[in-house]
Design a binder for these strands. Structure first.
Length: 891
RNA sequence: GGGGGGUUAGCUCAGUUGGGAGAGCGUCAGGAUCGCACCCUGAAGGUCAGGGGUUCAAAUCCCCUACCCUCCA
């Protein structure tokens, strides 16, 4: 019986007994931030069980796709090494919401297994909770189970709870005895043993209590049923397979992998079969997670996904899988799962794209990190040590982004443990660095939040000038009644038009004019909800608590900020249009003179896409749509599809800023009235700010215009300098560069030829002893590198001997010495270069047969040169045991 | 915002206490072959990311900048 048939039978069976067939919910739990992924069949019904969601539905049946990886129940590193662990699995379950209870749950389950699937009751066992007499009684009453097959177990195995508080209750599990050959062989092997003989296949949870914060259980008014049976397990049992991986849910995929591998799959017996299981399992979860729109990243769900993908690749390497392989395997997964999940086929090509990218990226990471790991392991082996140093772990993680579980996998094979403690210490240092660099900039507000009698009214959305009464004054950190000229102050008014820093938008600047003094406002903040505090400096006179002041926001600055804020929304929308919905805001700065927008995206944005984004934003600006900003119910805003990515605590009423047809976002900032006011939008640069996060900086309005004027002027100036006339500038520059390169080369080769020629025709003095030649020469030159070229020319004519060249420039002498290979040991020129350089107060060195040196020019150069020559010749002669002068000339 | 690492020929990368810029692949030419692949010989191809400093001498050491990777906040 294949898995498709099992699915059908299960759904039909329960549907026939009044259960609604509910399609599998998303792997991303809706509205549940505590949960990384849907990891059990009941997750989509959690709110119903908790009583938070009302439903008229009484019974449901589902086959829920689940992912278990990361978070508390992390089996990731076991997957592949067992027959049963998966990161992705499907949970079949029937549910009763205050409808039927234990009796029906037991009889439904029993009948499905024995009648629908035809299982032999002699192979079935059940466990019940130690104190649950009722359950045991019902098993005896409503089923024909052999009574001695009912086993009682404790809380660990048979009591279920969702959390520390809330619904909970005993459960009852159905097990299949697979027979002796599945046993671990231990004499204690019985129900409850971890081995595969007694395989748990179905867990029936009887939700009957509510646990309060003190741990006290009280009966639920409407007890419920939640059951779960893994499709993979059931398939293995029904198909008589030893392992879930041998079933039709995996085998086609494993066969695909095998067709690309050098190592055969041996049905659980091969030494690399675990790698097959890892790759197959991880591919399934990757395809489904990617389908949900999760992208590989460095945090949260994306991080788990990245680890899964990368682990698959690592084990793929063991199998010698080619690269890129994931897109191919993803297709195989899609083909297998299309029948129950048709939507998987439609997203396949996008999923393949992401996989291909991630695979390439991982290969780079591996190639830089693996040699380091292997070298470390070799060193440890040599030293007979069994602990992988934490410092090295940190280096791998911090610098190379190398996944540590991969290090662990590699180390395990040598019986080496990882020093996680040392690693954590390094990590903590790193965090401390991050924190200290940050907290230095965060200023504490000196007053407590209850010092303000009532919330400051904000009128900045409608106007830019207003009168207000001074409620609080601070001079530095002290609360005062009065402030005076020259003081830096904090001011709180009863109502204000100054926008306080928030949502990325910087605070307004402007002026406060009181009856006796004048304050220049540099910014505004909200240290606590309801507060708006102006920071500034008293320019003249004095200002006191209780006075009424005229407030004027600097309108030019404000308008600049508004242009950039609306432009930010348009940019966000454009990025999502061009790059896809995976783009999420990750930070934003809106100031009068620029905007900075950080967003999630795994790679640099291509120049073409950047142009497209810029064009799109400008198009929206030219269309001059009215910007609509208004308050509304939060739920209504979310229904409109408003983007709300910041974790700010939005109240029930939220402000929604909308550019019709383009962008809807929750936003407390100030905006232009219509997009046309932005004028124009210019991206200045796109950079990376962290792994998976890109940053765009841009300007708008008059600034964009001024920038383009400046660029034009710059181009014009360059054109003038280059005398480009009407030639395209790029062409002209290329021409000049090319010409320059040709000149350089020409000069070089001309010099070489010139020196060769000089060499040939010069009356070069040399000393020859026993067929060995010594040449000492002196040149005036402006580039010491010239000596090398001359050396090439001179040494070309010498088969055995030594050459010392002395170059004289304005204030320095340079030495270059060479000895033919046969004399390298006998007459090491390096010692001469060293000596002579030292004589003029410099230094030198190199290899015996090639040395360079130099130093300041001595006062009497001619004398120095002559004496150097004499000394060298003397040494050369005595070295080769000759006395008479045998110097000659080539003329 | 704060760390760590990287940038060398068209591509992939070596380059040891600072001392003549390299390899493989690719390109081009010649050879060999009926022809192709392979093979043999040779050549072209480099502001060692950019700038500054230290030094007699910097791809190499130090500082700054740009870009890329990565971690922390």
């Amino acid at each position: 019986m294949d898995s498709w048939e099992l699915r059908q039978k299960f759904l039909l069976y329960f549907n026939a007994s009044g259960h609604d067939v509910v399609p599998s919910a998303s792997l991303i739990p809706a509205g549940d931030p505590t949960l990384l992924f849907t990891n059990a069949g009941m997750v989509p019904f959690k709110d119903i069980f908790l009583g938070a969601e009302k439903t008229s539905r009484k019974r449901a049946v589902s086959i829920q796709k689940c992912v278990r990886a990361g978070g508390k129940h992390n089996d990731l590193d076991r997957v592949g090494f067992t027959r049963r662990h998966h990161t992705f699995f499907e949970m079949m379950g029937n549910f009763s919401f205050g409808d039927y209870f234990k009796r029906d749950a037991i009889s439904f389950a029993w009948n499905f297994l024995t009648r629908e699937l035809g299982m032999d009751r002699r192979h079935l066992w059940v466990t019940v909770y130690r104190e649950d007499d009722e359950a045991e009684h019902l098993w005896r009453e409503v089923t024909d189970i052999l009574p001695e097959r009912i086993v009682r177990l404790g809380e660990k195995d048979n009591f279920w709870q969702m959390g520390d508080t809330g619904p909970c209750g005993p459960c009852s599990e159905i097990l299949v005895d697979q027979g002796e050959e599945f046993s671990c062989g231990s004499p204690d092997c019985k129900v409850g043993c971890d081995c595969d003989r007694y395989l748990e296949i179905w867990n029936l949870v009887f939700m009957q209590y509510d646990r309060n914060a003190d741990g006290v259980l009280s009966p639920l008014p409407r007890p419920s049923i939640d059951t779960g049976m893994g499709l993979e397990r059931l398939s293995a049992v029904v198909q008589g397979k030893h392992s879930n991986f041998e079933t039709d849910l995996f085998m086609p995929l494993i066969r695909t992998i095998q067709s690309h591998s050098r190592v055969p799959y041996e049905e659980g017996q091969g030494s690399l079969d675990h790698a097959y299981r890892v790759v197959a399992d991880h591919l399934r979860s990757s395809v489904f997670l990617l389908h949900e729109g999760i992208a590989p990243s460095n945090e949260g769900r994306g991080h788990v996904l990245r680890r899964i993908i990368r682990r698959a690749l690592l084990f793929g390497r063991e199998l010698g899988l080619p690269h890129p392989i994931l897109p191919v395997l993803a297709e195989s997964v899609a083909r297998m799962m299309e029948k129950p999940y048709p939507e998987i086929g439609t997203s396949l090509s996008r999923v393949q794209d992401v996989l291909r990218m991630e695979e390439g990226r991982f290969h780079q990471t591996l190639e830089s990190g693996l040699p380091l790991v292997q070298e470390m392991l070799r060193t440890l082996e040599k030293k007979q040590e069994k602990v992988f140093p934490g410092e090295m772990l940190f280096l791998l993680h911090d610098t190379h982004g190398f996944p540590l579980d991969i290090v662990e996998d590699a180390a395990r094979m040598q019986g080496i443990l990882l020093d996680y403690k040392g690693f954590e210490e390094k990590m903590e240092e790193q965090r401390e660095r991050g924190r200290s660099s940050w907290t230095g900039k965060k200023e504490e507000f000196p007053l407590s939040s209850d010092r303000l009698p009532r919330a400051v009214e904000f009128h900045g959305y409608e106007k830019s000038s207003l009168q207000g009464d001074v409620v609080l004054l601070l001079n530095g950190k002290n609360e005062v009644k009065e402030v005076h000229a020259g003081e830096d102050v904090l001011v709180v008014l009863d109502k204000t038009v100054f926008y306080p820093e928030g949502g990325g938008q910087v605070g307004d600047v402007g002026d406060l004019i009181g009856p006796f003094g004048y304050i220049r406002v540099r910014g505004a903040k909200k240290p606590y909800p309801g507060w708006i505090v102006l920071t500034g400096k008293v320019v003249s006179g004095k200002v006191a608590v209780g006075e009424t002041v005229d407030q004027h926001v600097d309108e030019e600055a404000r308008q600049g900020a508004e242009r950039h804020h609306t432009a930010t929304h348009l940019l966000h929308a454009a990025l999502r249009t061009v790059l896809g919905d995976q783009v999420r805001q990750a930070g934003s700065l809106v100031s009068p003179d620029r905007l900075r927008f950080d967003f999630t995206y795994p790679q640099p944005v291509s120049p073409e896409n950047l142009l497209a984004v810029e064009a799109l934003v400008n198009g929206w600006i030219f269309r001059n749509a009215a910007v609509d900003a208004r308050e509304m119910e939060k739920s209504k805003a979310l229904d409109m599809g408003a983007l709300a990515f910041f974790d700010e605590k939005y109240g029930d009423r939220v402000r929604v800023v909308q550019v019709p047809g383009t962008s809807v976002e929750l936003c407390g900032g100030t905006h232009v009235r219509s997009t046309g006011q932005i004028g124009s939008f210019l991206i200045l640069q796109e950079t990376g700010v962290a792994a998976g996060i890109r940053r765009i900086e841009a300007i708008s309005g008059p600034l964009a215009y001024q920038k383009s004027v400046a660029w034009r002027q710059e181009l014009k100036d360059i054109r003038g300098l280059l005398e480009a006339g009407t030639t395209p500038l790029e062409e002209k520059v290329r021409f000049i560069l090319r010409e320059n390169a040709v000149f350089q080369k020409e000069i070089q080769s001309l010099k070489a030829r010139l020196f060769a020629l000089e060499e040939k025709h010069s009356r070069k003095e040399f000393l020859e002893v026993e067929g060995h030649r010594l040449v000492v020469m002196h040149f005036v030159l402006d580039d010491p590198r010239e000596l090398r070229v001359r050396m090439d020319a001179i040494k070309a004519g010498i088969t055995s001997g030594a050459v010392l060249l002395i170059g004289e420039s304005v204030d320095k002498l340079a030495f270059l010495g060479w000895t033919s290979p046969d004399l390298g040991e006998t007459f090491p020129i390096s010692s001469w270069v060293k000596t002579l350089a030292a004589d003029v107060g410099g230094r030198g060195g190199g290899k015996p047969s090639w040395a360079e040196g130099g130093g300041p020019k001595p006062e009497n150069v001619a004398n120095f040169l002559q004496s150097a020559k004499n000394r060298l010749e003397e040494a050369f002669r005595s070295r080769f045991h000759m006395t008479g002068p045998l110097s000659g000339r080539i003329g």
